[in-house]
Measured scan of single mutants.
Amino acid sequence: MAAGGDHGSPDSYRSPLASRYASPEMCFVFSDRYKFRTWRQLWLWLAEAEQTLGLPITDEQIQEMKSNLENIDFKMAAEEEKRLRHDVMAHVHTFGHCCPKAAGIIHLGATSCYVGDNTDLIILRNALDLLLPKLARVISRLADFAKERASLPTLGFTHFQPAQLTTVGKRCCLWIQDLCMDLQNLKRVRDDLRFRGVKGTTGTQASFLQLFEGDDHKVEQLDKMVTEKAGFKRAFIITGQTYTRKVDIEVLSVLASLGASVHKICTDIRLLANLKEMEEPFEKQQIGSSAMPYKRNPMRSERCCSLARHLMTLVMDPLQTASVQWFERTLDDSANRRICLAEAFLTADTILNTLQNISEGLVVYPKVIERRIRQELPFMATENIIMAMVKAGGSRQDCHEKIRVLSQQAASVVKQEGGDNDLIERIQVDAYFSPIHSQLDHLLDPSSFTGRASQQVQRFLEEEVYPLLKPYESVMKVKAELCL
């Protein structure tokens, strides 16, 4: 049975990233139509530049190519590739079939990587351009969430054990800070992308030097003109047959890092959902379990974690691919890159769409948070109580021993009897502590235990987050809708 299948058929496997999760716009960027249309555009740009620099290419040939950029006979191309065992030459023939007058000058002087690699770089750039505003929107939604809850005390956790208090907004800023680093890295790697350009079979530009009869300047002009037509500021000066596969490492490393950030955020949300302090959106008709109707599973956060793990592992592909590119190139890269580049971007696209949807509907339960604080705060307040007693004339050592005994009794009630923490009640009825009984409410005010959390939130948002989001103001209103 021949390899390949009808990918629109229910009898043929289709990647869930495309069929179930990723956005239509990201799927289109990695589609065959987008790819092969870009090949034709690159052939047109090459012909236009070659004509401008004096090669015998007519206006009629150029116009014929322009008129057929979208006229792609995919069936013919597939048949040609089956016959020739070469995808680029299959599309040269297919393009030439609908451009008979231009057929002889299509791909003039070029090698397969002229269309293959340059198209990949265009796709990487455009895919990054799709991700950047999506990530900015996630940051914006979380920034709104953090600002609104900047002063809401909550129990902090280290080692997932109760620690000092923080605020809900401050905790959210930990998430935002990681995503801001990801946004900066995505922008950097996007701006650092260079075009492969017009380089020939081993990167020496020998074929173009021959076409222009040894004119170095025209060869350099050709490279520059096509690079500018493709919208790049610069091209690699040095290439082998391909652009260095280190570029793929750079791009997928940034995406993998984004995956790590999203995994951490969504894990926190899942843990908070278990504590009943916070939940992701839950639709009115949504079913959490087929057997347990009360369940409210954090399905979206779980999906993000599941896909983020996949995204983090994909960076190993370009690392290994770059390491086995012998001399000017081997074909070890080809099949692998067809999979890992598309999957990385479709996965990143999915987790950003999902995280935006989550961040637009996060639900906080202040009463649950308050109750958990009441359970733990008495123990945390013991040092403040000791200091207040010393100020009232008591002995630190005597007070410490009193607190120690009462704390152990209260802990026994919590752990052995399943009761509430009654340390404060014990202190309130103990005559030894009568000098500070009137101060206990103040000493137990949760806001006095959150330090500068709310001020940190305000400063972080104003100095770091809002300036970073400013270039994306025009796209901030787009909502994230999930079908599944």
Results as ranks from 00 to 15, higher is better:
456 Q>S: 07
366 P>G: 05
368 V>L: 03
406 L>Y: 12
195 F>S: 06
331 L>Y: 07
322 A>Q: 10
414 V>C: 05
25 E>Q: 13
428 Q>W: 12
325 Q>E: 03
38 T>N: 05
111 T>I: 01
83 R>F: 13
219 V>R: 04
315 V>P: 09
12 S>A: 11
317 D>M: 12
114 Y>I: 05
305 C>A: 09
477 K>D: 07
430 D>V: 05
426 R>T: 06
85 R>T: 05
310 H>D: 02
202 T>Y: 00
68 N>Y: 13
233 K>S: 10
217 H>W: 13
471 P>R: 15
303 R>E: 01
262 V>G: 08
308 A>Q: 03
429 V>A: 11
241 Q>F: 00
419 G>S: 09
271 L>D: 02
399 C>G: 08
89 M>K: 01
235 A>G: 12
472 Y>K: 06
345 F>T: 11
217 H>P: 10
467 P>I: 10
257 S>V: 06
9 S>I: 15
25 E>W: 10
411 A>M: 06
364 V>E: 02
362 L>R: 03
3 A>V: 10
326 W>I: 09
230 A>D: 00
195 F>K: 01
159 H>L: 02
175 W>H: 08
201 T>G: 07
458 Q>I: 13
353 N>C: 13
405 V>Y: 11
314 L>Y: 15
98 C>A: 12
324 V>S: 09
45 W>R: 04
281 P>I: 07
157 F>Q: 06
64 E>T: 12
128 L>F: 07
470 K>H: 13
310 H>S: 08
242 T>V: 13
328 E>N: 01
368 V>T: 09
388 A>K: 05
102 A>N: 10
438 S>Q: 08
436 I>V: 08
286 Q>W: 01
190 R>K: 14
143 A>P: 00
341 L>E: 09
383 E>R: 01
288 G>P: 00
251 V>C: 09
350 T>M: 11
174 L>S: 14
335 A>D: 00
171 R>N: 00
171 R>W: 00
364 V>C: 14
74 F>N: 14
89 M>N: 01
248 D>Y: 01
234 R>N: 10
393 G>I: 05
392 A>W: 15
190 R>N: 08
98 C>W: 09
418 G>V: 03
477 K>Q: 14
371 R>A: 03
129 D>A: 10
344 A>I: 04
467 P>E: 09
95 F>N: 10
235 A>N: 13
379 F>G: 02
256 A>E: 02
25 E>F: 08
395 S>T: 06
25 E>G: 12
53 L>P: 01
149 R>N: 09
388 A>T: 06
441 D>R: 09
297 N>C: 00
283 E>M: 14
308 A>D: 01
194 R>T: 06
341 L>G: 14
298 P>N: 02
343 E>K: 12
4 G>M: 15
209 L>D: 13
216 D>K: 05
132 L>R: 13
386 I>D: 01
51 Q>R: 08
117 D>C: 10
319 L>W: 02
110 A>E: 04
432 Y>R: 06
377 L>W: 03
385 I>H: 04
56 P>A: 09
458 Q>H: 12
353 N>S: 12
442 H>A: 15
152 L>K: 05
370 E>W: 07
301 S>Q: 04
287 I>M: 08
186 L>M: 09
134 K>N: 14
448 S>N: 15
453 A>G: 11
191 D>L: 07
375 Q>S: 06
369 I>H: 03
434 S>K: 13
80 E>M: 10
247 V>I: 10
339 I>S: 13
165 L>T: 00
284 K>C: 14
406 L>P: 03
10 P>R: 14
296 R>C: 14
220 E>M: 11
44 L>I: 07
284 K>F: 13
307 L>E: 03
453 A>H: 05
341 L>Q: 14
269 I>R: 02
228 E>F: 07
210 Q>N: 13
268 D>Q: 06
357 N>Y: 07
73 D>W: 08
39 W>F: 12
336 N>Q: 10
255 L>N: 05
359 S>L: 12
174 L>E: 09
116 G>Y: 01
93 H>I: 06
217 H>N: 12
318 P>A: 10
178 D>G: 05
111 T>W: 00
379 F>P: 06
84 L>K: 11
152 L>M: 11
447 S>D: 11
448 S>K: 14
53 L>W: 01
68 N>G: 10
373 I>L: 14
258 L>S: 07
